[in-house]
Amino acid sequence: MTDTHVPEEETRPEQPGRRSFLSSASTFLMFGGLAAGYGACAGVAGRFLYPAKPREKAWQFVVQIKKMKVGEALTYQIPGGEGVTVARQGSGETEADFIALSSTCPHLGCQVKWEARNNRFFCPCHNGVFDPSGKGVSGPPGDAEQSLPAYPLKAVNGLLFIEVPMDNFQVDAGSTLKSQTRRT
């Protein structure tokens, strides 16, 4: 709205005829300096408002491997969050013999169910169907070629661990008493 006015404003010294290179260069430099300083400051403010940390993840214990038979599945609940279907698919004792799939349908966020007799995951909201590997085969997820998100698993000394986000309901390790003494 004022583009015609701004340069005029800035270069309206007493004698307009002496509008020189020096003047426009200094104006340019001034705006450059201001933009750099305040721009960086705005960036800091923006970073301050953006959630402090990226989603932290951690390996959490799920189950002793020998407690699950091949073909069995259990629901692991992420602390304070959604359920994850952990199924044993092989007889070995490595993470490759297990699969951990989010039970949240990628379509609109309903909870899917494992239907053992049909060997599939089924989402009751819009009849979405996923195969045992979590790949969408029919219904909206099938059409959109969506899969159930898989969580990384790790087998250590006969124990199965899952890597899950920790930003829900997380608390500082160690006692509150301890953390207070640490601060003072």
């Binding site: 800091v44 403010a45 970073r47 301050f48 953006y50 402090a52 940390k53 601060r183």
Partner: peptide, 14 residues
């Protein structure tokens, strides 16, 4: 306030 000072990005600066 502790969160602002210790954890939020640039919180101590603001």
């Amino acid at each position: 306030v502790r969160y602002i000072t210790e954890e939020a990005a640039f919180g101590w600066y603001i």
